[in-house]
């Protein structure tokens, strides 16, 4: 990379109602990971043991919002990150988990936890330690302001690399050709 920022940028990532595929695609930058960590450092991320997000330059969110915990984490990210990126179909529009949106919650719960063959002690889990689920899975821009959206399920490793290197170098990130896809 040509223009290096003066100090390391802090980057945080989170997976909300996603499958981790977008994080896997991030790791699909392969050896570029070693170049990347010369210029960034990770804050809270599933890849580190930092549990609370601190002040960051870039926040990357995978997954939509499906429960109260997701809402909390998302708001913390918005408060702390100068630039917030929605990575992948689930964050951008809810993705596949939003397929549950047309089904009443109670019906699903009863079917999966109570009235299925092969269940012992069938009941709906209801401990206060479990975060409150929302009736619908929401895209993250409905809850906080988002600076950039990267579509794809997941966006490819090369797309993530191009986007981040543009952003870090101070260019307007642009994905063109095969790097921009919706699936």
């Amino acid at each position: 990379m040509s223009t290096l920022p003066a100090r390391k940028l802090r980057v945080a990532t989170a997976s909300l109602a996603g499958c981790f595929g977008c994080h896997m695609s991030f790791l699909d930058i392969d050896e570029h990971l070693f170049e990347l960590v010369d210029i960034i450092e990770f804050d809270r991320s599933p890849l580190t043991d930092i549990k609370e997000v601190g002040p960051c330059d870039i926040g990357i969110i995978e997954g939509g919002v499906c429960n109260s915990e997701n809402v909390h984490v998302l708001r913390e990210f918005r408060r702390n990150c100068k630039t917030l990126i929605a990575l992948g179909a689930c964050a951008v529009n809810g993705g596949l988990p939003a397929q549950r949106n047309h089904i009443p919650l109670a019906e699903c719960l009863r079917e999966v936890y109570q009235f299925r063959p092969g269940l012992e002690n069938g009941q709906i889990p209801n401990d206060p330690e479990l975060p409150l689920p929302l009736d619908k899975v929401r895209p993250i821009h409905e809850v906080v302001r988002i600076d950039y959206f990267i579509p794809g399920c997941p966006p490819s490793g090369p797309a993530i690399w191009k986007f981040l290197t543009d952003l870090i170098a101070g260019r307007t990130p642009r994905l063109t050709g095969g790097l921009l896809h919706y699936d």
Partner: peptide, 22 residues
């Protein structure tokens, strides 16, 4: 699988408009 909670929560958008409730 889907689960549910015994409490209720409301999700408000940036302007305080009700978006969803658990």
């Amino acid at each position: 699988a889907l689960g549910k909670m015994p409490l209720a929560v409301e999700l408000l958008d940036a302007e305080g408009k009700l978006l969803d409730h658990a």
